[in-house]
């Protein structure tokens, strides 16, 4: 079974702790009334956790445009 560690939506933890990461998969398009377009619901994850249905394989986010 795939784990969060293998998911391309999980970036490393802010401290570099190899066991944790930040999942940035959940993005919400905001209404036109808002000043910005997108909200990102981050989630701290243990990299050993079983991956969720949104899993896509990859070491980490490679496309910088999709980071923060």
């Amino acid at each position: 079974m795939a784990t969060c560690k293998e998911c391309k939506f999980v970036t490393p933890s802010p401290t570099g702790d190899p066991t944790t990461g930040i999942c940035l998969v959940e993005r919400i398009q905001l209404a036109d009334t808002q000043q910005t377009n997108t909200a990102i619901k981050g989630k701290m994850v243990q990299k050993a956790m079983e991956a969720c249905p949104k899993f896509e394989a990859g070491e980490s986010w490679k496309d910088i445009k999709n980071l923060l």
């Binding site: 919400i28 905001l30 909200a39 990102i40 923060l68």
Partner: peptide
């Protein structure tokens, strides 16, 4: 600095009418 960007996705909706995950 860019903390207002990085911490947006860590912060739930707030009472100023901001959505969860907004900057």
């Amino acid at each position: 600095v860019a903390g207002y960007i990085v911490n947006g996705p860590k912060t739930a909706a707030t009472a100023n009418g901001r959505h969860a995950g907004e900057a």
